[in-house]
């Protein structure tokens, strides 16, 4: 555990909680892609199956349970509790175009051809693109609530901090996992455009809106 890893995890946790609080406080999930949230629930479920088989640390187990719990709570709020506010017409990204290729890639490129390992690899690849329906939705409507941009910023920051964590681990522990690193770099790149808009608009007090 290093400082980048810890702050990365906390940033991830902050993102998840910001999103839950936004929906809960406003009683609305307008502007939120339910499809991205379903993908994240699948990501956590397939990656954290090892909760049942391997104990790593109390920290590790607690965070996994919290991430999974929050992911399902978010999906529940979008598709059940506040379904009337869900903007399904704008959430039109075709997720099968992500899930099918990602599944194929996980079967082809993995560390070990075993059930658990392929599910883990699938979750790593899927996480790297799971935010696309959300970014697609924003590009379609041309705007995002400020609180939604804070959520996205925390999520992107978590990925960027994980890259620093991997650099650290490579130098000080000789540890690296190429699958996680490549997928993590791809994921971080997807946020670059958003980071730019966040810094130039949202941090200056403006709402995030895209030119028509």
């Amino acid at each position: 555990m290093n400082i980048f890893r810890l702050t990365g995890d906390l940033s991830h946790l902050a993102a998840i909680i910001i999103l839950l609080l936004k929906i809960w406080k406003s009683r609305s999930c307008a502007g939120i892609s339910g499809k991205s949230q379903i993908l994240f629930a699948i990501v956590f479920t397939t990656r954290y199956l090892d909760l049942l088989s391997t104990f790593i640390s109390l920290y590790n187990s607690c965070m996994k349970v919290i991430y999974i719990g929050c992911a399902y709570a978010t999906v529940y709020m979008i598709y059940m509790k506040f379904r009337a506010t869900y903007d399904g017409n704008h959430d039109s990204f075709r997720v099968e175009f992500l899930v099918v290729p990602v599944g194929g890639l996980a079967v082809l490129i993995n560390h070990d051809f075993s059930f658990m390992e392929i599910l883990w690899t699938f979750s790593i690849y899927l996480e790297s693109v799971a935010i696309l329906p959300q970014l697609f939705m924003i590009s379609k409507t041309g705007e995002a609530e400020t609180i939604t941009t804070h959520y996205l910023f925390c999520l992107g920051l978590y990925r960027a901090l994980y890259i620093f964590n991997w650099v650290w681990r490579f130098y000080f522990e000789g540890f690296f996992d190429l699958i996680a690193i490549v997928a993590g770099v791809v994921q971080t790149i997807l946020y670059c455009d958003f980071f730019y808009l966040y810094v130039t608009k949202v941090l200056k007090g403006k709402k995030l809106s895209l030119p028509a």
Binding site: D50, T54, I56, S57, K64, F175, F176, D177, A180
Partner: peptide, 10 residues
């Protein structure tokens, strides 16, 4: 063998 390491990252 990296993959045999415990997956301690979240």
């Amino acid at each position: 063998h990296q993959e045999s390491k415990e997956k301690d990252e979240l």
